[in-house]
């Protein structure tokens, strides 16, 4: 395989620019910064851009902009600078999100702790003390992938899907956390429950979190969480990061 970054097709109308094969801090920064640069270019024929954990994505109209031309434009932009040295996006914030770990609200804490080689108490301490960063928003609206957790949490997804986890569920796999914005089936292990609402289509700012934001999942109890459900932010607090 050639050196990163690599440019590959995604379907007949998509181009994926990947900065690494595995998640790393520099590759994630590169993906976020390169997507911002693509957006700023505003090339004719480009219909939409996004970033994932280590890649930027371009959807384009191949009848207006040929693959060859777009590939060349993307390569020229890649050559402009060292994207791995890019800064994190501006306007970042730090969120504290009250979370119930385990109990019948988050029934997979025990098995996830075991997979990580930790006791349940150690697992809760590890997860609630970690200050993780929104690496990308994806899968469902407003839904963050957060990392990176300590190495013990490099546990695989389950082979069988959990048929349903509720909105606000916190799940773990692959040294990452996902905080679910909708009720969904998943292969990730459900270790915590929050009352946060990440996507509200009818309010002026429908998406709560942004890539680059930092998050800590602080422990709370079932009764307190129940009271926080009336708050759209689920009791989460937010402060600006310099």
């Amino acid at each position: 395989m050639q050196d990163f970054p690599i440019i590959r097709t995604a379907g007949v109308d998509g181009l994926l620019i990947s900065f690494a094969a595995a998640l790393s801090e520099p590759a994630n920064r590169a993906a976020l910064a390169f997507r911002a640069a693509l957006e700023a270019e505003g090339w004719a024929g480009v219909e939409e851009t996004s970033s994932s954990l280590v890649s930027a994505f371009v959807r384009f109209d191949p009848l207006r902009l040929t693959h060859a031309a777009l590939h060349q434009q993307v390569q020229a932009l890649l050559d402009q600078r060292d994207w791995y040295a890019a800064d994190l996006p501006g306007g970042r914030r730090f969120w504290r999100v009250p979370t119930v770990f385990g109990t019948d609200l988050a029934p997979q804490l025990g098995q996830a702790a075991q997979a990580a080689g930790l006791s349940e108490a150690e697992a809760i301490r590890s997860l609630s003390q970690a200050r993780v960063r929104v690496q990308t928003i994806g899968f469902a609206p407003g839904q963050p992938y957060l990392g990176e957790l300590p190495p013990a949490w490099d546990i695989p997804r389950q082979k069988e899907l959990t048929p349903r986890v509720p909105e606000g569920a916190l799940a773990v796999a692959l040294r990452q956390l996902v905080l679910f914005s909708v009720t969904t089936p998943t292969g990730w292990q459900h270790v915590g429950q929050t009352a946060i609402r990440l996507f509200q289509p009818d309010v002026p700012e429908p998406f709560l979190l942004r890539p680059g934001d930092e998050v800590q999942f602080t422990t709370t109890d079932t009764e307190t969480l129940a009271r926080m459900r009336s708050d759209p932010r689920g009791g989460a607090s937010c402060e600006a990061l310099a």
Partner: peptide, 19 residues
């Protein structure tokens, strides 16, 4: 297959689940 990094999906993708 269960440890592939989550990556961009587009409509039309043929996704192969764990089974």
């Amino acid at each position: 297959g269960r440890s592939v990094l989550s990556e961009t999906i587009v409509p039309g993708d043929i996704q192969v689940t764990g089974d």
